[in-house]
């Protein structure tokens, strides 16, 4: 019997069925696009400058001229919210990207190597999580001094632990899968098995968490701004704006409310994307 006589192989039935992204992902991406436009070209959208004082129009309720009203310096709240997008997206990105990269990489390596490297990093992680997240970040910023850069450093020093946990656990599961063992039997090097095979199959939870974490990052930036440890006035930052408006809550609710809504919108955007990505990144089976 020769190979030519091998029975014909039927084509797999589901071969060419494409999977469309879920609507949540599409909505999330549309909202993100809106946020990006606001962040990159705020001039186009904003009717006024975010920092110009207008003492003629202090604490005005929403009107057709100032749809979100004005604050105690007469600044247009809509414009400030729009200009705030850039700084808040930046905060969302920088408070999560470094922890994500660092934590995921470390998680992959220690999850794969195990033994002492894993134990060592595990102790370190325990040390970090003993303290409440915010308390630790505040403590570090207090030592380094206020400002966005120091805030990023502080958050990165603490935030990697979650990513490390997620990726480490996933890699430890995946390395028992037969395709990983097959890689060893095929004589592949450990780094190839780890980075080419295990990591792509293990990184999904971390990416999904990254999206949730971005909304948390904005809130964190807001909290720190509120405490005066993050973005410094007069930078239009949503958290700082919420904090500034709180004294006027009873008389001028719009000052805090609209930046608060913007925060929520950004949070929802990231959650939708995270949810959609989780689905899209799942390997088909």
């Amino acid at each position: 019997m020769t190979v030519a006589q091998l029975p014909p192989v039927v084509a797999a039935p589901q071969a060419n069925r494409r999977r469309w992204p879920k609507p949540t992902l599409l909505i999330g991406l549309a909202l993100l696009l809106l946020l990006l436009v606001a962040a990159l070209v705020p001039k186009v959208l904003a009717p006024f400058s975010p920092t110009d004082f207008d003492y003629e129009a202090i604490l005005q309720a929403p009107t057709s001229k100032h749809p979100f009203g004005t604050d105690n310096f007469g600044r247009d709240v809509l414009s400030r919210v729009i200009y705030g997008t850039r700084i808040d997206l930046q905060i969302a990105l920088f408070t999560t990207l470094f922890p994500f990269l660092f934590g995921t990489l470390l998680g992959a390596v220690t999850g794969y190597l195990g033994r002492w490297s894993d134990a060592l990093v595990g102790r370190l992680a325990d040390l970090v999580v003993v303290f409440p997240f915010l308390v630790l970040v505040i403590a570090i910023v207090a030592v380094l001094g206020p400002g966005l850069t120091n805030m990023y450093i502080a958050v990165s020093a603490v935030g990697w632990v979650s990513y490390w946990r997620l990726t480490r656990g996933e890699v430890m599961t995946q390395k028992k899968a037969e395709y990983a063992q097959a890689g060893r039997v095929l004589g592949y090097s450990p780094s190839r098995i780890l980075f080419r095979h295990l990591l792509p199959n293990s990184v999904t939870p971390a990416i999904v968490y990254l999206m949730t974490d971005m909304s948390l990052g904005i809130l964190l930036g807001a909290s720190l701004g509120y405490l005066g440890l993050g973005a410094q006035p007069p930078t239009p930052e949503w958290g700082v704006m919420v904090a500034d408006g709180k004294n006027f809550m009873a008389t001028a609710w719009w000052i805090s409310t609209f930046p608060g809504l913007a925060l929520t919108l950004a949070g929802v955007t990231f959650s939708l994307i995270g949810d959609g990505l989780a689905d899209a990144l799942r390997p088909r089976a």
Partner: peptide
């Protein structure tokens, strides 16, 4: 010396 695995579903990287 090569080995072929029992489970045709899990012995291939699902993303390659």
């Amino acid at each position: 010396v090569q080995m072929i695995f029992q489970d045709p579903y899990s012995s291939l990287n699902p993303r390659m």
